[in-house]
């Protein structure tokens, strides 16, 4: 069975990617891996107890985002085989790692990061340049 991977961070761009990936998985009769990632912010100065709470909160948020995207994918096609993956690490690196065992990786053009004027987000750019398989960059849905 083919594997299609989609990255999600709960942004509008990611939601467009999830919908595209779900349709693609139907066409390819593939299973869909919905991948959310989380990482500890580089500079956090808190007590060890607070840090533990913070890490848990960050991880739980990623889990919630993944679950929401899984539901969105299943709404496109109820019979779809969907795997939920929550990994620790930089989103771009996590998706490149996933690409080694995938037939296709789907990402939104831009995620939650700032700089809306940039054409390609840093994650989509990283994945496109390093993935081991074809990568689909999905633009945000245009409202007419």
């Amino acid at each position: 069975m083919k594997t299609i991977v989609v990255g999600t961070d709960g942004s509008a761009g990611a939601n467009a990617a999830v919908e595209f990936a779900a349709r693609e998985a139907v066409a390819h009769k593939a299973k869909l891996r919905v991948v959310a990632s989380w990482e500890v912010p580089p500079v956090v100065m808190v007590s060890p107890e607070m840090a533990a709470d913070l890490f848990t909160a960050i991880q739980e948020e990623a889990q919630a985002i993944a679950a929401e995207s899984v539901n969105a994918a299943k709404a496109v096609e109820p019979g779809l085989v969907v795997e939920e993956v929550v990994s620790e690490g930089h989103a771009g690196q996590v998706l490149v790692e996933e690409s080694r065992h995938a037939d296709l990786v789907v990402v939104g053009r831009r995620g939650r990061g700032g700089f809306a004027e940039l054409l390609l987000g840093s994650v989509s750019q990283h994945v496109m340049h390093h993935a081991a398989c074809p990568v689909v960059i999905v633009p945000p849905v245009k409202k007419d």
Partner: peptide, 22 residues
């Protein structure tokens, strides 16, 4: 692996999904 100028033009400007094949 690098994008050629045509692929880069498409990727920067297209309003439709673009698949990039390595």
């Amino acid at each position: 692996l690098v994008l050629g100028s045509i692929s880069r033009h498409i990727l920067n400007h297209a309003e439709r999904p673009v698949v990039v094949i390595p």
